[in-house]
Design a protein around this nucleic acid. Structure first.
Length: 221
DNA sequence: GCGACAG
DNA sequence: ATCTTGTCGC
């Protein structure tokens, strides 16, 4: 797929903040999807050579049967450090390289990390979604910001994630008895719809099949 | 000023 | 993210 460059990549946190504040105004948290959903994708990053090289992986699966239909890998020098709140500047450049190689355009992309559950409401899922203009969902394995009530051990149960009196996402149990996932709108999708699709992409394990496949491609030898 | 802190 | 073996539990 073709990808439009909507901004240059910053070198400093100050520049990054400016970009986040600008792009945040372009994020849509209402459902604006191409249904029925036929393809869902997972995107993730892995590192080699002591972290100096980034390896991005994208896995496109059919929906709702979740069969792998296409995958791609892309390598590039890591150009931004990991700083909480600025993950997208470190990971998106390589992810775009991998997405450009994809022929099957996904209807939804599940990203590793937060969506609007971010200090400036522009986690990696929102950032990527605005750039490629495809619905995205933030699927994080741990908390960045926000608070929530305890939730039942049963699969499917969830609690709203709150930050500054605002619901920014959901803490979702994708499998009975295991640590929950932090779900939030990335772009062009509502929280409830995001929760629905995440559960439908998670038939057996804690992580959605999409991210499991992408994870494996990005970290495997 | 003191902690918290996606991957 | 990554470095790393065995081990507990369904």
């Amino acid at each position: 797929m073709k990808i439009q460059q909507i901004h240059s990549w910053p070198t400093t946190v100050e520049e990054a903040i400016t970009i986040q504040e600008t792009l945040q105004n372009q994020v849509i948290t209402k459902d604006l999807l191409q249904e029925p959903i036929k393809y869902v994708a997972g995107a993730d990053l892995g590192f080699l050579e002591d972290g100096t090289i980034s390896r991005a992986a994208v896995a496109v699966l059919s929906f709702p049967d979740l069969q792998v239909v296409e995958t791609s890998l892309a390598y590039r020098p890591t150009s931004f450090p990991y700083i909480p709140g600025f993950l997208s500047f470190r990971e998106i450049p390589a992810l775009l390289d991998a997405l450009e190689k994809i022929q099957t355009i996904p209807d939804i992309i599940l990203c590793d990390g937060q969506g609007i559950a971010h200090p400036r409401r522009l986690g990696i899922a929102c950032h990527l979604g605005v750039i490629v203009d495809i619905p995205t969902i933030g699927v994080a394995k741990s908390l960045l910001i926000g608070k929530h009530e305890e939730l039942p051990e049963t699969k499917g149960s969830w609690q709203p994630l709150i930050h500054k009196k605002e619901t920014i996402g959901a803490v979702l149990r994708t499998r009975t008895g295991v640590k929950p996932l932090y779900i939030s709108s990335g772009h062009r999708i509502s929280l409830s719809t995001a929760i629905d699709y995440v559960l439908r992409c998670t038939p057996k394990y804690r992580l959605p099949e999409t991210t499991r496949i992408a994870d494996k491609l990005a970290s495997d030898r």
